[in-house]
Write a protein that binds this DNA or RNA. Sequence first.
RNA 1: GGGCGACUAGCUCAGUUGGUUAGAGCGCUGCUUUCACACGGCAGAGGUCACAGGUUCGAAUCCCGUGUCGCCCACCA
Length: 969
Amino acid sequence: QGFETLWVPGVDHAGIATQAVVERRLFEEEKLTRNDIGREALVERIWKWKDQYQTRIIGQLKQMGCSCDWQRTRFTLDDVCAKAVRHFFFKLFKEGFIYRGKRLVNWDTHLQTAVSDDEVKHVTVDGSFWYIKYPVIDPQPGEPEYVVVATTRPETMLGDTAVAVHPDPETQTDKVIAELEARLAGAPEKEKTELQKELDELNERKSSEILSDLKVLARMAADNRSVMLPLLNRPIPLVADEWAKPEKGTGCVKITPAHDPNDYEVGLRRNLPMINILNKNGTLNEEAGPFAGLTTKKAREAVVTALDELGLLVKVEDRVIELAHSDRSKTPIEPFLNDQWFVKMETLAQTAIESVTGQADGAPAPKSITAPDGRLPKERNSDDKARITPFRYTKSYLDWLGEKRDWPIGRQLWWGHRIPIWYCKGVSEAELEKAFSGRDDVHWRKDPETGDWWVCCEEDGLAASAVPGRELVQEEDVLDTWFSSALWPHSTLGWPDDTPELAYFYPTNTLITSRDIITLWVARMVLAGKFNTGQKPFDDVYIHPKILDKYGETMSKSKGNGVDPLSVIGKFGADAIRFALAYLCTESQDIRLALDFECPHCGAVVEQTKKNRVLHRIACPKCKKDFRTQWAESDEDKALPEGLIAGERFEVARNFCNKIWNAARFVLMNLSVSPKPGTPCSDALGFLEDQWIFSRLETVTRDVTESLESFRFAEAMRILYDFAWDDFCSFYVEMLKSRLADDQHKSLAMRMLLYVLDNLIRLLHPVIPFVTEEIWQRLKGAMPNAAYEESITIAPFPVVDESLIKPEVEQQFKVFQEVLRAVRDVRASRNVPPKTEISFSVRCDKQTAELLKPMEPYFLSMAKAKATAWGEAVKAPALSAAVPLTGMDVYVDISELIDVKAEMAKLEKEIVKLDGFIKGKEAKFDGGFADKAPAAVVEKERQSLVDLKEQRQSALTSLEQLSNLHPGT
RNA sequence: GGGCGACUAGCUCAGUUGGUUAGAGCGCUGCUUUCACACGGCAGAGGUCACAGGUUCGAAUCCCGUGUCGCCCACCA
């Protein structure tokens, strides 16, 4: 369409995932851990690994024919991106958006790093629920001697710093009861039993000792009373906090702020000490007293035994629990209190919320824009709001941002952008001012906890000795990968420098991505883009469906159910994978894609199963020979031929490409003289099929353009598939064969074929670049004098000419197709030998007769049927097969082959069918249809009913005629 | 617990704002191989649109509910 376009290819460093993979390999191959080889050596190894995979990923894109700007390939850790990251961080730091705080992280004790919530998977396991007594200190008369708490993780009691009770248990219980009653009233029958049971229990509790005890405890909490933490004999306060639910468990809850997210919140609210009892390797530290050094598992047993011996263990219940596991190491996650850097989200999230269109019809639909004058399409959407397509994803974007939760940006990793913060112990602000006077790339802020200073430097690094007499130590942690990915739209264009690229291409037009990173990536790109540049990063966000495997599971490396595009390309070609993917791109959120292996030795299809899909090599069950999979790593495995992946969707696409190729071959074959390409319009108006193909082509051009511009890729592909296969190949090319054989008509026929093919391949080229380019080059070669562009890639995309769209012509052509099909059907169903020519006649009105008479040669070439008569007066020949159609009857003369009984049976069946339709329609009119439906619809239905009745009458007449021949039947 | 989505032919899926007799590919059945393409051609069979209500002259489509499956978010002392 003539636009200046840019597609920046690139990869991000995928911090945790990448480091974990390299560490795992390091351990598997050399039995070394990251601590054995050190930060520098590990990072060096990860770079090597990354180079290898970047090459592979970029290679996959290239082989798929993606037309990226390869010389602009970016990586989130390269210098250009790193500079942007430091600038972004510095700007945030300087403006007060960055702070440091304690936070519970998901600690992977195996990898010894924090992992993000997304990398934590919950696994259902059988666990226990322990009830433990904590003695009350100095119980007064009327007060309980113990409080009982329940836990699934008894070892964490060593880190308890309080026991919480609700400040007003009675009111709270009443409130819960009231809510439950309200729910019960509106609940479906099925759930009522369970709700009622719950309600009964609560009511019972209300009058029980539990509640009266809780009331006493609430008062004691208000009086700042304490209980004794057993085993460690540490007095801990009884606190009043809403987190303790009087309706649940014992109504009291132990508070372990350093090892439980909710308890942490309580700890903050009640100003409780936070005692970390864990070492980074998952063993207990000195805070655990006699239990120090034990693993959490051993400590749990020891704690339970010790409590039991003291008579403080009330009971143990079996309980199914959802235990958090690290997705990376598959080991249980320990919540762990750690220092973290955060970005305050309040105002940033608000700008991101305001930067997307929150109403489905809030933004105009994209319009077709062609820009021969080089106008940029970004002018079309200048309200500074991005639009998400499909719109339903807007909700998850807005909901997530609405929580405005601060963004923890530090990761305890070595692979990533190291946080540009330096610590300096004992330094005074005056010293900093002196050391950095005149520098605007350094900013400092006081650590409210220690009183030390944090120094942030935008440039690449501060020397340890930058402050005379002091030592600067850089933060060990690196930044979350999304911190750098968030900058992608502007950092890759050179921000913070004022580059021409940034001025020209930013804001960008379209971001295409997967729904699972709408929050992680899209939301952060919007807020970072607005914060850094003041503008939204893109006009449109297109969320494509996600391809799942045949079991409906997401594809992942660890499951081994992913697809290497190169495997698909190897078997079906790049055009096929591209077409197949575009064809699958509906508004649906999932696409299931069944794939199987194909044995390279014998061609047998080997079903892909959950078991064999992760193997490096597979033995073919048919020929017993081994083949490799995409996972092959050893030289031995790699030497085997690859079992390519088969898939029905790819086959369909491959067949389509093949069809296009063959159609083009046919056209090329007939280019005996060099016709001029161009619109052969005026000459072609004499032929119905020419007018028809023009109309179809322009309709298709219009619809495809509109579909592509509104991200309806599957629809665009379906339109092109149907047009190319059915209209162009099955009808137009077939019809023009007879014109090509006629010297008088040959020239125009050739120009017509060329014209349609030329437009078709231009329309297909964005999706099927390789085959269409090859066809283009051959056309160019066949017509050296024609003004073909050097490559189809730079040839103009067709622009619709609406004046050629003629619905009445398309309707007329349908009549031809209907008659042709009727004749062909008679041939096929009556077993007329293919070489036998038959004759037929058609009873129809005058206009139709005039329309179809010129088509006689096509009935001959396409159905080997000779037309003998057209018109109102046509009567059925004595021994014919009659096909009643809308407004006409087709009589095929099959006197040699006729089976009268069978013909009659067919007609009778047809009449029954028509009766059904007629009844349905008449019933419709018996209702208030005619009065209430729009006039156009009523008229259409009325006509349809008339036609059906006529058709029925024709069938009856034909039946009568046949039965006269055989009076007995 | 909250949200989103799916359920249409044996299989995999289309079906835009409600409107003629619900479509495609694969598979299946019959015929077809010098004549662009067997990765092809022609024709055919095959569906109570998950279930139950409702709105409407009219529902695959809109509304309420049920079931099954999947995904996302939150939480589970």
